[in-house]
Each structure stands twice: as C-alpha cells, then as structure tokens.
Design a protein around this nucleic acid. Sequence first.
RNA 1: GCCCAGGUGGUGAAAUGGUAGACACGAGGGACUUAAAAUCCCUUGAGGCGACUCGUGCGGGUUCGAGUCCCGCCCUGGGCACCA
Length: 861
Amino acid sequence: MSEPIDKFDHKEIDAKWQKRWREAELFKVTEDATGPKSYVLDMFPYPSGAGISVGHCRNYIPSDCYARFMRMRGNNVLHPMGWDAFGQPAETEAIKRGSHPRETVPKYVANYKRQLNLVGISFDWSREFNSSEPDYYKWTQWIFLLLYKRGLAYRSMAPANWCPQEKTVLANEEVQGGLCWRCGSRVEKRDLPQWFLKITDYAERLLHDLDGLEWSEGLKMMQRNWIGRSEGVEFEMKVDGTEHSFRVFTTRIDTVFGMTFCVFAPEHPLVVRITTDERRAEVEVYAKRAQALSEIDRMATEREKSGVFTGAYAINPANGARVPIWVADYVLMGYGTGAIMAVPGHDERDFEFAKKYGLEIRRVIADNSSLADVPLEKAEPAYGVMVNAGEYSGVACDEGQRRLGEWFEAQRTGERKVNYRLRDWLISRQRYWGCPIPMIHCPSCGMVPVPDTDLPVLLPDVDNYQPTGTGESPLAAIPEFINVNCPSCGGAARRETDTMAGSACSSWYFLRYADPKNDQAAFDPAKAAYWLPVDCYVGGTEHAVGHLLYARFWTKVLQDAGYITFGEPFLKLMNQGSVLGLTPFRKPRENETLSVGQEGILVRPEDVPSIPQDQVFWRWERMSKSKGNVVTPDEMVEDFGADSLRIYELFVAPFEMNIQWSSEGMQGANRFLNRVWRAVLGAKFDREWRSKLEQPFDGKAKSLRQKTHSSLAKVYEDISGFRFNTAVAAMMEWLNELQDFQSSGGSSAAESEAIECFVRALSPMAPHLADEMWERLGFSGFLLGDRLIDPDPAVAKADTVTIAVQVNGKLRSTLEVPAETVGPELERLALADQKVVQHTDGLTVRKVIVVPGRLVNIVAS
RNA sequence: GCCCAGGUGGUGAAAUGGUAGACACGAGGGACUUAAAAUCCCUUGAGGCGACUCGUGCGGGUUCGAGUCCCGCCCUGGGCACCA
C-alpha cells in the first residue's frame, strides 16, 4: 500500500468494482439458489430525455440498500428493472422534436441504465425488458384477450377531450383551464367508442383484500375511498302522467319521506323526453353549458349550485307525493343512476339547492318525536328517529332503513343494493405509441378477437403518426395495418385502431420479471409461483389509485383464470418521499389568469435573468423535466462518488419524507466515508481476530466490542424497517467510537472485529468502498456474496446504564449504575443523591416511581 | 368543502409515555501550515455571572411524567371524482 490513505479515490474505485460486479454477473439470480426468496421491486420508470434525477435515486438507492441487505442476510433476492416505455409523453416529445419514439426510447433507456449503474444499483439486468417491445406487449395483448374472453372488456361510447384546432384527442394533462395547452383553443367534449375494462366487477375483492396488505394506512384509505362502497336502496320512480320511469339510489332511504324534489344529471337520457315544451329551451341551454364544464369544475365545492326545472313531476313511491324534477350539474351521470331523490332537510347540497330555488324543506328526522315540527336552519344529516313519515313516524332511522328496504323489495319497485363509486377503467387511447388492442371489426361477424396464434399485433413501424383529424388513432391512417381478413369468416375486416393506455403495460410487468425471456407464455407459472408475490414494492404515492389498483385487478383476473395462485401482487409497499428542487416562477401578466391553486407561471431557469427581478419568485416543487429543476446524480457521482451520494440520500431524512434538495450535505457524507477509509485501512488489521477474543479485555476494548454488537443489531433492525437515516447515524456513532479507541492508542482483536463487522455492515449502503476495503484488508471476493455477521446479544448488552433522577418530573441528577441494579437500590441511591436532597429539602416525599434501567422520579410536596 | 400526512435549534433531523435536540450540515474559536485545502480539538436551543429558568404550532385535558395519548383550534404540504 504505497499510495496515501487519507482519502479514497472514488472515480477509480467506482469504476473498478462496477466492472468486476458486471464481469462476475454478481447480481444475476436464479430460482435454484438456497435461502428463502425475496422479491424487492422498484416501480419501473418511464424513460425520459432528462435522465434520472437525484429524486429517482431516493427510490432506487434505499431499495437497493434493502435488497443488498436481504441478500447478505441469506435470502435469494430478485431485484430487477425494466422500462415503462409506451405512452403519450414519449409520443408528444417525439412529435415536438421531429423524431420517433422508436429512436428516442432506446437512447433514453441506455442513458437511464448507465446512470443506475453509475450509482451501483444491484439490478439483475439479465431480466431487463421494455414494455414497447413486441416480446413484451404480445403478452399485454394476450392478457387483454383473456379479459375479453372472461367478459371483462367491452366497448362503449364515452366523451373525450377534443381540440377543434388540432383535431385531436387531448389528455387531461393537455387541457389547462379549459384550453388546449398547445394552441389555446377551447376544448370540447366528443363522444367516441372506447374500450373499458370491468374493474367494477372486482370492487368488493379489491376493497376486502386491502386489509391483509402491509401498506401504509393512508394509502389503503385512499384506495378504500376511491372504491367508495356504500350500502343503500335503489328504487324506481314514475314520471307523473307519462309511461317513463327512472331509478335512484340512496344510502338514506329513511329520509325518503323528506323528498321534495328530484334532480337529474344534465346528460340523463330521460331529460329530453320529460322536459315540457315551455321549459325545453332553458333546459337545453343549461345542459349544453354543463357539458362544457370539466368534471372537476362541476365538483368544485365553492361553486354555487345551479339548476333548471324540467316542468315534469315524479311520484314518491313511499307516500305518493308529487315532486318536481330538476336538472343540475352537481349530479353526475357517472355515479349511481344519474338521478337522485333530493332531501333538503337532511342533505347539505340538496338544502343549498332548495334554498336557492325556493323548494320545500321538510323535517323527517329528529332527535326524538317531540321535535318533529322544529324548523330546520340547516341540513341535519344525523341519525335519530323518523318523523312526519306516516306509519314510520317514531321509528329509529336504522330500523326504518331495514323496513323500507324490505317494503320496496316486497313491492318489487326497488331493492337493497351495494353501490361503488369506482368506475370501469377506460383503457383506449387514440394514440400511436401504445400497445395495439388486438381486436378486429368484421362486417358480418362483429367484434372478433385476434387469435392467440396471431399475436402480437405489431405496432406498424411508420414515420408519420400525426393525428388523423377524425379523432381516430393515427393507426387508422395506415391501410396495411387496418385492412385484415376476419379470423372467423375470412372476409374483409378492419383492425381496431386504438392502443392501450400505458397503465395496461404496468399492470402485469412484475410477473414478467420472473420469466422475462419466455416466448411461449407471459410467464412460466412455476417461476411466477416461486418469485411472486412481490415481497417489497417501492414507489411514490402518486400511483395510489391508478397503477396500484389496476395491477391488483389484473392479478386477481389471472388468479381466477388459474395462471397464478395468489390474488395480491404487492404484499408490502413502501412509499418514498419526493425530492423537491428550487423552481423559478414569475408573477402573471395582466392578460394572464391563474387557475385555482396556481400561484405563478413556471419559467425556465435560463430565462430568469431576462425577467425583471421583482417578477420572479422561487418555490420548492417535485423534480421533473417539465419544471426544469432536475439535478442528476451524474454531477454528484463525479464530485464525490457513488457511495457518497448513496450515504447522503439514505441519511438526509426519513425514507417517506419529502426533502428539499441541497448538495451541501454531500460534503458530510463524503467526509464520513473518508473517515471510514482511514479508520479501516490505517489500523493493524488481524484476520485471526476471532480466535483472540477470549483474552481479557480492558475497559476500552470491552466497550468497543459492546458498541460493535449493539450497532450491528441497530443497523440491521433499521434497514429492515426502512429507517435508513438512523441506520447511517448508528454507523457514524460506531465509527466515532472506533476512532476514539484508535486515537487513544488501543489495538486489539476488538478493533479488528469492529473493522470487519463495520465493513460488512457498510456494504449495502456503500458497496464500492466496502468491497475495495475488503480487498485491501486481504480478503477476496465480493461482500454481497457473503453474509453479514450476527450480533451477539450478550456482548451488545451494556454493563452500566445512566439513570435519570427527577424530582416532581424535573431532571435533577443522573446515576451511573450497573445495568442490573434493581428498583429498591435505585430508589435508595436516588434519595441519597445530593441534588435530590437539595431539591426535596423541607418537602415530604409522597411517592417514588422507579423504572429500572431508565429513571427514578421522586414526587414530593 | 372532504380525505391523508406533517409542524421540534441557524439547517436536515433524533427520541418503546421516561434525561428533548442523537447523528450530521452550517457557523464561531483553536491546533497543524509560509498560506490555503484537508485533518484534528473545543463551542454552538434561548435567557442568566451563577444556582437555575424557559423551550417540540396554539389552548385545554389525562398522567408521577406528554414532542409522543385525548379534546378543540391554527398553519403547511399532498390527494380528491360535490359520491347522494
């Protein structure tokens, strides 16, 4: 060792070990290895031109630390990575740049992979795949057909955002303030035939199975609310003087006697048929205006209620009352039946509506029967006793609900029903860069699925995939693609031209890693049975109700079809916090209006100097390419090395917490690793330390051994629980003690033990440096292929403890006592303590609380 | 408006109901150096010469003891589909 050891050469060490790991195929795993399997999975990224940021690293570094740790604890760990490469952003970007996703995607993928290797992530690249490759999307299509054959895919008309200028369908993201974000024209709604997947058939199971998952309660709650199960009664109402009837759903059938009007969603098909001639013009205008509003606008609470009377009346089946039918945009066609019974006395929105339009408000619920005629100042949705309810008056609400449910069922005009707010999953996109939907429209046979043997339906490799102007996918303009013979009758037919949303590709990718090269099936059931379900899934909360729900749905369908034996794909889910970057904004100009929640106009950092200083302000926002606030790991790795970045990201904050990016702490992480380097390599290391541990240790060596073993226990526990920040802190404390030991001239087997244990424990966090030090200590091989050392609880146990001594709850003194000191002895010592004597002088000791190993609290007055 | 997280030094943060601020960053002082970098040592919640006092968003409560538990507020961040 001729070179100086005051600092490690991170560039040399990173490159050296990354090369060796690659050459040794260190990260490759197989099913036949020993030890229990563990599947540690990161949500696969969408590769964009900006590359991965230090924000992505906050996902991949901790999960890599965990995966490496699990492997070093004897598990057979699957830790794969792939690319979510289909999707609208890639297509939009390519159109803008005049390139093609087929060319840009592989470039971006190569860059992502380079960056991930740069920070030393232990992915098994032999299992890598890309969702936009036919080898993969063949099986996405196969699963779509499986859903179709099981009656879970159907086609239905649904509105899409339509830009009349560009003559194209827009994603919600492309609509801002009702305007197209590119050309600024007013976005319209246009009905198109679209494909849906029947996730609602699985609502109950998706809800129920959440209970068994090791996910955060907050996230489970989000899914529960999204599924939105409610129990109630759906019943039929007749439109007075016509043959028409409609159905309404309510969770509060006990309030049915308080119904003073009904409300239809503006899109309700009955609206045009029941509206009277004198009301027609007004209703039509209203419906048209409502249609132009986005759903979010219609939902906005602050908005004042609005509506129009149709001129028609309905009959309340419970009491025969004749109630007016209104149309209002606060009722949505997509939820329930698209029509409601309005009970203004006991529903806040109905109350507000009734107040505005002077409709009757009746009390039908009260705390007790004597309050039946107390006027209502506001809606009272509480439960109590039914009043003004005919023969039900005086009946408790919950009993009334049951009896009314039975009554409707006996009358055959309604039934008790469970309702969900979850809607079917709209999976079609009128886009080029997606997985083609494998269906054929035949004039004589109708809808015909592409036979499995004809899969994949290849996405045609064309240069021009601009919008068609008809609302159809660009694929509709490619004759070679659309013209096909019907697989059933052989006649001329037409291919489906919609592609699938990106979320289809990501709804089963976790299965493919088990068997990524299989060209006979999506996966070998035996391999899937070995690796799955995912033991630990790591990703952000932004997927709480999209991806995470869809993936659970597909898993259950595959289970029902017998391909897998489990119904939940992700047993444990960990959500990392975001990394926020400082992002420049400017104040709006006079002609610009901000939408709700927006505080300024985003500007690119390079434009800041050209904007008047007082117009610019900075905010912390999630790092993303579109915000121009991305910091890449490349520069951090260049300056400080992969391991410094890893330590910093592990240490900076709790895993699940958002952080504001600052590279100041990088110095500290780098300094820590340099101290490790000197403490480990500057010592006289004795490989045979194990055989020399029997010698009597002096106090210093003994306490170093205690620190070594207690730190191992703490670090292992913390990594297991994803508490990486305190795991790193424990390593730092351990190192401080080792350095103190060394600077006081100590040298013994205890020091060598500490060094070997430390280097091994550091390996999941800082693998490059750990392997380098391992080699320099005279060992060979890779630490990842080796085991961590088990802490010895007997050694980890401290001999003495510090006992806090309080008087009336205030700390007055501390006692340094042997760990096994019993309560009565602690009490005696505390009462004899000089500080205690001072503070209890003139007082009577009333009570002494002793917590052995912790504290003594003397209550005196 | 509803739902979910949070609120602790100059900063990131730590703390099974039991010594608030571990571990770091930054700052100040010192050693080494011609000097700087690096490294090492000391100080660093506020007030007070001190004994001590005060201090975890605010107000109550439970407890021998509350950052932690309960009730009522305020503020910040995230999510949302007015869900009948």
